[in-house]
Measured scan of single mutants.
Amino acid sequence: SEHYTFDGEEQAIRFMRDMEAKNLKYELQIHNGKYIIQVD
C-alpha cells in the first residue's frame, strides 16, 4: 500500500475521486490538518 499526503481538502477530494474512478480502495485519515490517503 502507498500513502499520499495532501495539505488541502480540495486536492484530497480530487485524488479520492480519481481513485474511485479507477476502482481502487483507499482510506482517509486526517492528522494535524493534513489529509493522508492510504491506497491498497
Rank of each mutant, 00 (worst) to 15 (best):
Q38D: 06
Q11N: 07
M19L: 15
D7K: 05
A21Y: 09
A21M: 11
A21C: 09
H3F: 15
M16V: 05
N23W: 05
K34T: 08
R17T: 06
R17W: 07
D7P: 05
S1H: 12
D18N: 08
E27S: 14
I30G: 01
V39C: 03
N32M: 09
N23G: 15
E20N: 06
T5K: 06
H3T: 15
V39E: 02
Y35D: 00
H31I: 15
N23K: 10
M16W: 02
I37C: 02
D40E: 13
K25Y: 09
Y35S: 00
M16A: 05
I13P: 00
E10H: 05
E20W: 06
F6K: 00
A12V: 04
K34W: 09
K34R: 09
I13Q: 11
G8H: 14
E27L: 12
K22I: 08
G33K: 04
R14P: 05
E20Q: 08
L28Q: 02
Q11Y: 06
L28F: 11
L24C: 09
N23H: 10
D7Y: 11
I13F: 11
R17A: 11
F6Y: 02
G33A: 03
D18M: 13
L28G: 01
S1W: 14
R14I: 11
I37P: 00
E10A: 10
D40W: 15
M16K: 01
Y35Q: 01
A21V: 07
Y26E: 00
K22F: 07
E27A: 11
E10F: 05
S1Y: 13
F6I: 03
Y26H: 03
G8N: 15
Q29H: 13
E20K: 06
H31T: 11
F15I: 02
I36N: 04
G8Y: 14
E2M: 15
R17G: 04
N32P: 02
Q29W: 13
R17Q: 11
S1R: 13
D18F: 12
K25P: 08
Y4P: 02
D40V: 14
F6V: 02
D18E: 14
I13G: 04
M19R: 02
I37R: 00
A21F: 09
G33F: 03
Y26A: 10
K34L: 11
T5R: 06
D18G: 05
V39T: 05
F6L: 03
E27R: 13
I36G: 01
